[in-house]
């Protein structure tokens, strides 16, 4: 089950990281706005919540950690 979750997290990471940079920026997150039923404010909140070290970019590790926390709830 752990591996399935990681695979899913990575799929989602790739949806956000459309250019395949290997990290997600605020702009990448805001680009999802037309596709997801979340406001820009909510997307910003998601970004800040996932960006554990606050450096302005989300690594696959930060993204996966956030996803696993959600998954375990």
């Amino acid at each position: 089950p752990g591996l399935t979750m990681l695979g899913k997290a990575y799929e989602f990471f790739q949806i956000c990281d459309m250019e395949g940079k290997g990290f997600i920026t605020r702009q990448d997150m805001q680009r999802l706005h037309p596709e997801l039923p979340l406001s820009l404010e909510e997307l910003e909140k998601v970004f800040v919540t996932l960006d554990a070290d606050g450096n302005g970019s989300l690594t696959p590790k930060e993204f996966t950690t956030g996803f696993s926390e959600f998954f375990l709830l």
Binding site: E35, L36, V46, T49, L50, F71
Partner: peptide, 29 residues
């Protein structure tokens, strides 16, 4: 505790975000 409230809200937004991604993956025709 305001911090706990903020945490709960973040969790709600995160859940909303990931659920939306889930339905985006599976929901489109």
């Amino acid at each position: 505790d305001p911090n706990m409230k903020a945490g709960a809200t973040s969790e709600g937004v995160l859940a909303n975000f990931f659920n939306s991604l889930l339905s985006k993956k599976t929901g489109s025709p």
